[in-house]
Design a protein around this nucleic acid. Structure first.
Lengths: 188, 188
DNA sequence: CCAAAGGTTTACTGATCGGTACATGTTGTG
DNA sequence: CACAACATGTACCGATCAGTAAACCTTTGG
């Protein structure tokens, strides 16, 4: 049971869960996809839930790493970075494998607010809100928490809309809205 | 097979699907909940997918009816109605059975963009966007489509955030943001 | 070289999945 | 009342669900 074997299983599971959904993906399918046997799979993860949680952890790490790094590449000042985050989102939407936000989907499939999977999905959003709040504060917003929440609303709305309504270019509209909101938050 | 029997089945199925999700809800469970036999169920709906589509149609009707009516109760002018829509959303979020947007969940569980269920979920969002566009035009926005899309982004983001992050009062922040965006859209 | 230890595989469990064949009412019409 | 037409319920289908027992390598320590 070398340590990277487990990581490889998580990586593959993440792909499949992201593509097909959690309930719609059976352990048998994952066993076939990974080439490992079922017993081995259950040696690494005691339950399907544990595997899902591991996949979500990896997704959180991957996504936040990419998102924050990309934002820093695109802009220098906190204010510009808040706006540039929507350019990063736009790139994500245009990417090949884009299938929406895995944590929104996790929260949708496991609706009980006390369920570990739901809790972990919420934690991801909380971390993003925290990041936006930090940017808003450093940008000089009068009420950083308020601006950060508004930016987050635009981001989540853009993701959902990118999945369901390709017609209205969510990333562009969200960016335009964010500019207006940022300016208003700096004036007061 | 009196016509209201089918409606009753759809109504009950809607409840269960909304509470528990689509893949997580088996036909056997629906059969038990409705008290009807399995054969009868499959006489009314040839497949589970057909039942889901019927439930989504009912949901679309119920939700849009309630939402539009409530908005009209809360405000008189198109501009005020755009803003008041977030008060209506807030009431929805605070309601007992609130479990997020059924169409976001449908789009999340059936991700294939050509899948009938995904298509129908998208249609619901399109109708809402159309409604917002009409309000924005009558409110005098310089680019009604742009304002409507931004309002929609805030709405979708607020719903998602209401599910996953109770901490930041999404309805209130979305409303505040909408006011700023509306004002900006009227100026230009 | 042997033997213990631990990872891997095969084959299986009972439960549940969506869906159906067939027997049993129930109802409208002569 | 008789009979056709149709709705309903019972009992079942093969497939798949998450999860496991026990045989089978494969590696490590002596």
């Amino acid at each position: 049971m070398r340590p990277n074997k487990r990581d490889e299983l998580v990586r593959k599971a993440l792909q499949v869960f992201y593509q097909d959904g959690f309930h719609a993906t059976g352990m048998d399918k994952l066993v076939v996809e990974t080439g490992v046997s079922k017993t081995s799979m259950y040696k690494h993860f005691r339950t399907k839930e544990e595997l899902i949680l591991a996949a979500l952890r990896l997704r959180d790490e991957n996504f936040r790493n990419w998102f924050l790094r990309r934002i820093e590449e695109l802009a220098d000042t906190p204010a510009d970075q808040l706006i540039a985050s929507f350019d990063a989102l736009g790139e994500w939407f245009e990417g090949d494998g884009f299938r929406g936000c895995m944590f929104i989907k996790a929260g949708a499939e496991f609706q009980d607010k006390t369920h570990p999977i739901h809790v972990q999905a919420a934690e991801h959003k909380r971390l993003l809100l925290e990041y936006f709040t930090d940017l808003a504060r450093r940008a000089g917003a009068s009420v950083p928490e308020a601006l950060a929440c508004q930016i987050l609303l635009l981001k989540e709305g853009a993701i959902v809309t990118a999945v369901l309504l390709k017609s209205c270019d969510p990333a562009r509209e969200a960016k335009a809205a964010a500019k207006v909101l940022l300016e208003a938050a700096l004036l007061n």
